[in-house]
Amino acid sequence: MDRHVLHENCAALRAEVGALTANWRAAGRYAPRSDAWLRSFDLGFSRELAARGLIGMTWPKEFGGGERSNVERLAVTEELLRAGAPVAAHWIGDRQIGPAILRHGSRELREEILPRIASVDAVFCLGMSEPEAGSDLAAVRTAATAVDGGWRLTGHKIWTSHAHHATHAYVLARTERAERKHQGLSEFVVDMNVEGVSVTPIVDLAGEHHFNEVRFDEVFIPAHRLIGRLGNGWRQVVEQLSFERGGAERVLSSYPVLAQLISYVTEHAGSELHTLVGSLVARLAVLRRLCREVAQALDDGQAPVRQAAVLKYLGNAFERDVIEALRHTELGREPSSESAFGQALLASPGFGLRGGSAEVLLSIIAKQEARA
């Protein structure tokens, strides 16, 4: 696409999203919050985005998509995150499950699932983490056993955001016992409303419920719900995590706090925070450039594993520093769970865990550099 045309398209998309979120806020239909992409769930808002063609933007039209670029999609996601909009209903399906199915799923699976994600008829949760596994994604015990017509799934997942709302789950399961734990893993799409699936809420310290435990007890999965090749799950999930780690949500989850900081130093001339906030804004500019480079790599058909890991590692540190900076103002002295600062503070322990800990990310970066 011509660079000038791309710039104009992105500007138009930003304006459209800005007007939509402003109208919703003015009507009292949502209040901006930190960590909105994970914690703020509103099917109505997501479906309005879908009606405007703003979900599944990069997918082929035959599968319900808009055939736009990942750079254009980045413009939309940045504006949604800056507005603290309630996007959790579609975020996981649009961000990573759809692209994973598009890359690796059978045509039957693409035709079945992708249009439903794009219209928000399908809401996905992620069945990755397991009890006692920590950040070791390969320590999967959940197992799928081959049976006539498909698979039987038994196991236990944890920290599964919005499983109580989800119509479908992405599940990483062991389909073969192998010498190395990274081998013998496969990816599946599982219906959440079938017999054998149970969801137990996990309420956090703020009294919010978005985490869950999910148990699968001999759950039947039709054969075509396998994503990609049997036993190739580890290679596929590492690629998929580049979609998860390389997005603007690794940089802008605490944007409402940064906006407050900027307003504060603007109103308090000569504040000692001017230099600190200036450095944060400069870091944000660099991180946004990294987001764009990841998006451009995706448009080029690459799986930018290392770039996404770098972005998440640096983005986690940036977001923690934004929150810490607000502590130096009266805005941060008495945080409440209703304030942008309080919401970001409560969410911050998860910044360095979800999508991979710092140690995991540094290992990925080092290995990728060694191969280069």
Rank of each mutant, 00 (worst) to 15 (best):
I158D: 08
W159Y: 12
T160Y: 04
T160E: 07
T160F: 03
T160L: 11
S161I: 03
H162S: 05
H162Q: 09
H162M: 08
H162K: 05
A163H: 03
A163V: 04
H164R: 09
H164F: 15
H164E: 10
H164A: 13
H165N: 12
H165K: 15
H165E: 14
A166W: 01
A166S: 14
T167V: 02
T167S: 04
T167F: 00
T167I: 04
H168K: 02
H168D: 00
A169L: 14
V171P: 00
L172E: 04
L172Q: 05
L172I: 02
A173M: 09
R174W: 01
R174T: 00
T175F: 00
T175H: 06
T175G: 08
E176R: 14
E176L: 12
E176T: 08
E176W: 06
R177E: 12
R177N: 08
A178F: 13
A178E: 15
E179S: 15
R180C: 14
K181G: 10
K181H: 13
H182L: 15
Q183G: 10
Q183M: 14
G184M: 05
L185T: 03
L185M: 10
L185V: 04
L185E: 05
S186E: 11
E187V: 11
E187K: 06
E187A: 15
E187M: 14
E187R: 07
F188G: 01
F188A: 02
F188N: 01
V189T: 06
V189F: 00
V189G: 03
V190D: 03
D191I: 05
D191K: 10
D191N: 14
M192L: 15
M192N: 05
M192W: 11
N193H: 14
N193A: 15
V194A: 12
V194G: 11
V194W: 08
E195A: 14
G196H: 10
V197H: 04
V197F: 08
S198H: 12
S198A: 15
S198W: 11
V199M: 03
V199C: 06
P201V: 12
P201E: 08
I202D: 08
I202N: 08
V203C: 09
D204S: 04
D204R: 05
D204F: 06
D204V: 00
L205G: 08
L205T: 13
L205A: 13
L205W: 08
A206V: 10
A206F: 00
A206R: 07
G207V: 07
E208M: 11
H209E: 11
H209Y: 07
H209F: 04
H209R: 13
H210E: 13
F211R: 06
F211A: 02
N212L: 09
N212A: 13
N212V: 04
N212C: 13
V214Y: 01
V214M: 05
R215C: 10
R215K: 12
R215V: 06
